[in-house]
C-alpha cells in the first residue's frame, strides 16, 4: 500500500513536470516558421550516393547564381574530379580552374600578382573579405562550403529520437531546399516562409529558365533548388559515399564477430552455474 502511494506521488510529480514543458512547447510552436518538408535524396539511407548528373547541374547553378555573392572557400577545384563527387575529368577541372583568377605572391620583386587558377587552388571568394561583402550587399553572405551541415531544423519530440534509427540526416539540405522555394510573397522579394522572422537578406535568387540545363532536366526553380542543395551536401560531406560504403562493411564484420563471440561465450559458460 505504502509503495503504491509513493509510486503515484513520484509519477504525479513527473507527469506534472512533463505537462508544464509540453504547454511551453505548444506556445513556442505557435510563432514558429513551418517545418521544411522531408525530400527524397539519392544520398539518403545506408546505401545512398550522389547522382553525378545532379551534382554537375547543382555546380552550374552555384557558378552562375550563388557564386556572385557566396564564397566556397574550403573547396579545392581538384575535388570536383575526385571519387564520390560530380565526376568531372581532370582535364575538365584544369580548364575550369584556369577560368578563375587567383591572387598569388609575393613574386621576387615583392609584388602580389594574379594568375590563372590551378586544380590545387580553392574557389576564390567573390569579395576580398566579409566587410567588403557587407558594404556591397548589406549583410555578409555565409560561406557555402559546409552550409548543408551548418543548417538544420528541429524535428521535436519524439521524432528527433527516431531520426538516428531511420538514418534521417538530411535536415540541412531539406532546409536549404525549402528556403529556396520559400519566396511565396509575390510583392516582397525578401519575404521567406522558412526564414526565422520571414525577413531574409537574400532576395529571391532563382527564377525559372535562369540557368540552362543541357541534360534535359527541367529548368525550374524547384529543380535548381534541388540540384544546388544536393551539390551543397557534397561540398559539406565529400566523403559521404565512402563513409556509407565503409560503414556497411564494418557493420557486416562486427555483426559476424559478435555472433561468433556469442556462441563462444555460450560454450565457455555452458559447464558452470551462473
Amino acid at each position: 500500500m505504502v509503495h503504491t502511494k509513493k509510486i503515484s506521488l513520484v509519477a504525479a510529480i513527473l507527469a506534472g513536470a512533463l505537462a508544464f514543458s509540453m504547454s511551453a512547447r505548444a506556445q513556442d510552436h505557435a510563432h514558429a516558421t513551418p517545418t521544411p518538408e522531408r525530400q527524397s535524396w539519392t544520398f539518403g539511407g545506408p546505401f545512398g550516393g550522389f547522382d553525378k548528373g545532379q551534382l554537375q547541374r547543382g555546380f552550374k547553378v552555384y557558378r552562375e547564381v550563388c557564386a556572385n555573392c557566396h564564397s566556397l572557400s574550403r573547396i579545392a577545384f581538384r575535388t570536383l574530379a575526385e571519387e564520390g563527387g560530380p565526376g568531372f575529368s581532370e582535364s575538365q577541372v584544369k580548364a575550369l580552374a584556369a577560368e578563375y583568377k587567383v591572387k598569388d605572391g609575393p613574386d621576387d620583386k615583392g609584388e602580389m600578382f594574379e594568375r590563372p587558377g590551378r586544380a590545387s587552388d580553392r574557389f576564390p571568394a567573390p569579395f576580398p573579405n566579409p566587410e567588403a561583402a557587407r558594404a556591397a550587399l548589406g549583410a555578409a553572405p555565409p560561406d557555402m562550403s559546409v552550409l548543408a551541415k551548418a543548417r538544420s531544423y528541429s524535428r521535436g519530440f519524439p521524432l528527433f529520437l527516431v531520426d538516428p534509427l531511420i538514418q534521417y540526416q538530411e535536415h540541412g539540405v531539406d532546409y536549404i531546399y525549402a528556403l529556396l522555394n520559400g519566396y511565396t510573397n509575390k510583392s516582397d522579394q525578401n519575404w521567406n516562409a522558412y526564414f526565422p522572422g520571414n525577413k531574409i537578406g537574400m532576395a529571391k535568387p532563382l527564377s525559372d529558365g535562369q540557368v540552362e540545363y543541357t541534360d534535359g532536366a527541367p529548368a525550374t526553380v524547384q529543380q535548381y533548388a534541388k540540384d544546388v542543395s544536393a551539390f551543397l551536401m557534397w561540398t559539406a560531406e565529400p566523403a559521404l559515399e565512402k563513409r556509407k560504403k565503409t560503414g556497411f562493411r564494418v557493420m557486416i564484420f562486427l555483426i559476424l564477430f559478435a555472433g561468433l563471440l556469442y556462441f563462444t561465450k555460450k560454450k565457455v559458460w555452458a559447464g558452470v552455474a551462473h
Binding site: 551548418a150 540526416q169 540541412g172 563513409r243 556509407k244 557493420m251 555483426i255 561465450k265 559458460w269
Partner: peptide, 29 residues
C-alpha cells in the same frame, strides 16, 4: 569472453553513429 561480446555489441552501436549519423549528436551551429 563475456566482456569481448559486450564490447563488440557496443561497437555496433558506436559504428552506427560514426558511419550513418555522424553529426546527429553534435549541433549544426
Amino acid at each position: 569472453v563475456k566482456d569481448a561480446f559486450g564490447l563488440v555489441c557496443f561497437l555496433i552501436f558506436y559504428a552506427w553513429f560514426i558511419f550513418y549519423a555522424p553529426n546527429y549528436l553534435g549541433h549544426a551551429d
